[in-house]
Design a protein around this nucleic acid. Sequence first.
RNA 1: GGAGGGUUGCCAGAGCGGACGAAUGGGACGGUCUCGAAAACCGUUGUGGUGUCACAGCCACCGUGGGUUCAAAUCCCACACCCUCCGCCA
Length: 428
Amino acid sequence: MLDIRRIRSDLDGVKADLARKGVDGSEVDAVARADSRQRELAARRDELRSQVKALSADIGRLHREGRADEANALRDDSRRLGDEEAALAAEVDTLAAEVRDRLLAIPNTPHPDAPDGADERDNPVLRVKGFDPDGYGPHQKVPHWETGTALGILDLERAVKISGSMFTMLRGPGATLSRALCQYALDSMADAYEEIRPPTLVTTATLTATGQLPKFADDAYSIPRDDLWAIPTAEAPLTSIAAGEVLAAAELPMRLMAYSPCYRREAGSAGRDTRGLLRVHEFDKVEIFAYATPEQAPAELDAMVARAEGLIASLGLAHRVVEICAGDQGQAHHRSIDLEVYAPGVDQWLEVSSISWLSDYQARRAGIRYRPEGAKGNELVHTLNGSALAVPRVWAAIVETHRQPDGTVRVPDVLRPYMRGIESIGRR
RNA sequence: GGAGGGUUGCCAGAGCGGACGAAUGGGACGGUCUCGAAAACCGUUGUGGUGUCACAGCCACCGUGGGUUCAAAUCCCACACCCUCCGCCA
């Protein structure tokens, strides 16, 4: 969430920033009003409390001195003030909750360098690598679900039988390829990122810290009996690792990575890009993540993009890097870069990674701070996250890009050590 | 799932309803001493809010949420988490 103090001191600036995301400023006004009323009443409440405390101390002293009559006289005053205080306190609590609820729903402000724009059509393409629109033969223009089914490495029908639509199942070398991708991604990042294997069911508090709740409750699978949620991304548990903690400045940047399954209800997206592996309810992903100081954050973002891009390139896939414009950014995002891979079989650019700098937006929700070198107080950290590799779309792009004229699929060299030496899927 | 024990500051640990934001010890930091260090001694050492130009001041926080009381770390209730034992289990 945003800093309430920034809303107090620069209301118009905040509204102008949010307008770039297409966010109406009236909610910010409402927060500012509730906040100022809350502070006004809290000041009066504290004054009353102070009086009650002083009276109570007097009463105690009088009792010890055996002056019970005088003590009893004061007790009535104190009781009256106490009742007044309680009423005021209830009002303050209501207002404080209102401020927090409203604040939670207000998106992060975009970075000044994030390009202007309303939606995805306005996202500038920063660079394109390895893409030759005329360089694909007919053998590559076959959708991965056809190739996958023909080779027996993708079994969509049985996945649907087991779990319903938009669930998938990989078989044989297809399943091995999926696992190889994760292993390869983890090993490639291991020099800088600590590997974590997080829980994949998390509490409401955890999903609130990252911004998925309360706004996007419909997008996540929930387990109401135990008040748990299936994570839509490992970003959720990774962000919450340091929740409520104060990190040492020397620990920053703290880089983490995690393989995890990810669960998404994809509510409202039925029929859109849903064939094959393009949009699924459950998939595997290797996430990279960093806690950083505000000063370190830009370089961390660049490094994460470079690493994810290097991974995709090493798989022999055409890809492009796109900066997300203010109007297309996610609600918690400050600055975002997407990696898209070209899949010739479906003739589409598929988003395979979204790397984002969240500024202190998540850290404020989750209470993640650090103590700057030599400083007295604590500061909020900045968080960054992104996919190193999200399996299904990369799997699809590999099966389409590396399909040979004989219908087999060549395994990228870098994956062979993870594929028990399988060089080609489908060749006997 | 059942039974019992616990949760206090950076750590350990005390705390009779009032003088407790909290004894004491350790740690850390600063100083004295020393050529330097150790030891000893002295001092400092939580977080958040509000407020102020800055101080001061005021408020909150002893797992969380309620309650009793003029007054709660302390009494009552509920819940969460941790530990031990039993049951179940990959």
